[in-house]
Each structure stands twice: as structure tokens, then as C-alpha cells.
């Protein structure tokens, strides 16, 4: 479904990501783990068009999307939920969700999608008229995911959804992520919390210094000595 070939991204003249190739198949949860600064977020930002791609290609759903404008990428159903949530703080929860369904197709389905999002996150329904900036951290992350779902993603790219949240809420988020995945939404997950990410995923890639150094079944990586030492702290 998503195929990235030999992606390279630089910040100015400083290379950040080299030769990254990865795939996400339909209905899969794939995680991208690695230390801070390994290039995980940069990779996502390049795929979603926030950062310019220096070389390499991105294919999604049979079409090339390398360097396409964000609204084209979003219309295809490739949605990124950015790190640190990036909500519209002075807009209500309902308005934030409405902005998620900005593209034409998503807007037609908005009412039905909203019912689904409210089912996944009943809290968002309770708080629908509250300003997004006044929500708790956990609620903000729910809203960020809900807003992304409003765009009717075929593939959802989540960047550090558990960042700064209490363990109980993180468990909740992972549970909901699996539930979303069961509705035929593929997920590409970037996480610091490698253990939980691997337990939830089908496959995973490990990034180090801007390169993919390891790839495989999530279960196999969970048992890999190197991964255990470096990322799971065991």
C-alpha cells in the first residue's frame, strides 16, 4: 500500500535520512523505532510532504506521490498525525474534527465518520464545544487521532502518540489503535516506547543515524538480542 524507495532528506546541506526503503501493506501495523534523532519523524514528514524529498520515491495505493502537495496526499488517504499533536488550540473540539474532514470526499462522509470517532473516543463527544487548547494531554492526543480519522485515512502515520502521557492512557491509546486497524486502516507508527510498539505491530523497522538498520516481524525483533539491549532496556 505504501512503498518508500531509497528516500533521502536533508536539512539544508545536512543530510538527515539516507536510503530509507520501507513498505506498509494493507491492514498492517508497522512501527518505526529508534533513538531520538534517528530520523523517524523526518521520514514521516517527507512522506506526508511537509519536508522536501531530496531523492527517492514514494508510492501509495499504486500511485506515485513523491513531492505531491499535501492536499493531494491527504485526498489519497495518507494521513499523518504529527508529533506534539498540533491541534488548533483556539477552535472547539468539534471544529478541529471538522477541519480533519476538509477534503471533498472526507466531507461527504463527515457525519458518518464523526459517529465512528465519537464511538472510539466518547470523551470527544462530551467535550465537543470545549476549546482544544484547554483539553488534558490525553484528550488532546485523542482529538489529534480523531481529527486524522475524519480525513478517512487508508493509512494513518502516527508520530509519537504516547509522548508525555500517563501509562494508563497510553494503554488506552494502543488499544484504540488496534481497534482502528481492525476497521481496515493500516498504521505506520513511530514510537519511543519500543516495547509496546513492537507488541502491537505486525512488522517493524529500526532506524539509526538516518538509516534503517534492521527490519522484520515485530515478534522476532522483540526477541532480538541487539534490539532488546538497545531499545527495550532489557
Amino acid at each position: 500500500m505504501l512503498r518508500v524507495e531509497q528516500l533521502a532528506v536533508s536539512y539544508g546541506i545536512i543530510p538527515a535520512v539516507h536510503d530509507v526503503s520501507l513498505t506498509v501493506n494493507e491492514k498492517e501495523i508497522v512501527s518505526l523505532i529508534g533513538a531520538n534523532g534517528a530520523g523517524k519523524t523526518t521520514t514521516l514528514n517527507a512522506i506526508s510532504g511537509v519536508l522536501p524529498i531530496r531523492s527517492g520515491r514514494v508510492f501509495f495505493d499504486g500511485q506515485e506521490l513523491t513531492g505531491a502537495g499535501s492536499h493531494r496526499i491527504v485526498e489519497r488517504g495518507l494521513i499523518q498525525i504529527p508529533e506534539e499533536r498540533h491541534l488548533f488550540p483556539d477552535m472547539s473540539v468539534a471544529e478541529n474534527l471538522e477541519m480533519g474532514a476538509f477534503s471533498a470526499e472526507a466531507r461527504h462522509l463527515a457525519r458518518r465518520t464523526l459517529a465512528w470517532v465519537h464511538e472510539l473516543f466518547p470523551r470527544l463527544h462530551e467535550r465537543r464545544s470545549q476549546l482544544a487548547g484547554t483539553l488534558s494531554g490525553g484528550e488532546q492526543q485523542m482529538l489529534a487521532i480523531g481529527r486524522g480519522l475524519m480525513a478517512r485515512p487508508k493509512l494513518l502515520m502516527l508520530d509519537e502518540p504516547s509522548l508525555g502521557l500517563a501509562p494508563l492512557i497510553v494503554d488506552d491509546l494502543f488499544r484504540i489503535m488496534v481497534e482502528i486497524n481492525r476497521s481496515d486502516v493500516a498504521i505506520l507508527l513511530v514510537e519511543q516506547n519500543a516495547a509496546q510498539a513492537l507488541e502491537t505491530s505486525h512488522r517493524a523497522y529500526v532506524m539509526e543515524n538516518g538509516r534503517i538498520t534492521l527490519a522484520g516481524e515485530a515478534q522476532a525483533l522483540l526477541e532480538d538480542e541487539q534490539v532488546r539491549a538497545a531499545y527495550l532496556g532489557i
Binding site: 506526508s48 498525525i81 498540533h86 491541534l87 488548533f88 477552535m91 480533519g100 476538509f102 477534503s103 480525513a151
Partner: peptide, 14 residues
């Protein structure tokens, strides 16, 4: 208003 409040998010929402 969305663009004014968070340009990156507005971009990511298409």
C-alpha cells in the same frame, strides 16, 4: 483560523 493557529496541522489536514 486553522491556518493562523497551526500552519503545519492545516497543511497535514490537506
Amino acid at each position: 483560523r486553522a491556518c493562523a493557529q497551526d500552519r503545519v496541522a492545516a497543511y497535514l489536514m490537506g
